[in-house]
């Protein structure tokens, strides 16, 4: 098996860490613990394989810049939680699913196809802002994962809400 090098102890530790982190930000891991631990094993395998924890249910390119939007938690988690009650791989679920009022199920893919992503990347160059006149005292940065906004010279190293890394922020204003 490809994931043999990931030990049960590693999976358990990461499960506990992610669960505490999720709950502290108002998110929930899937209560189906066996399913969730399988996903976490996949995440750890991707981390070992690519150097970044790409979504276990999507085919990553291995190039970090191209995979940024699918590094867990992905850019699509929150809209999917709102619309379907779970993210694409169903690692994260809504309160209703956590409480067992609703079951997690496979949902459609929200990530745009590769051809569209290339176009979006080109149109979102940060240079767009460097020459722009603004009356704001500070630039405003937006976390692409959870929407957290902050006005400061640079984005924080880690999003205080969803723990996404600095590279997941975009200039908002």
């Amino acid at each position: 098996m490809p994931n043999r090098e990931i030990s049960e102890a590693q999976v358990d530790a990461e499960y506990q860490r992610l669960k505490a982190e999720a709950e502290s930000g108002g998110y929930h891991l899937n209560p189906d613990v066996a399913f969730t631990k399988d996903l976490i094993r996949g995440l750890l395998a991707n981390e070992a394989r690519y150097g970044h924890g790409a979504c276990p249910c999507r085919l990553a390119s291995g190039i970090k810049d191209d995979d940024l939007d699918i590094i867990c938690p992905c850019d699509y988690r929150d809209p999917d939680l709102s619309e379907y009650g779970s993210c694409y791989c169903a690692l994260y679920v809504s309160g209703a699913i956590l409480r067992g009022e609703k079951a997690a199920q496979a949902i459609p893919e929200r990530r745009p196809p590769e051809s569209e992503r290339r176009g979006m990347k080109a149109g979102r160059s940060p240079r767009h802002f460097t020459t722009r006149e603004t009356s704001l005292a500070y630039p405003v940065w937006r976390c692409k994962v959870c929407g957290y906004l902050c006005a400061r010279e640079e984005p924080p190293e880690q999003c205080p809400i969803c723990k996404a890394k600095k590279e997941r922020f975009e200039r908002f204003m």
């Binding site: 399988d38 996949g42 276990p56 249910c57 169903a90």
Partner: peptide
């Protein structure tokens, strides 16, 4: 399938 995917495993 993907070896890491929960839905593929299901």
């Amino acid at each position: 399938a993907l070896s890491t995917c929960g839905w593929c495993k299901k």
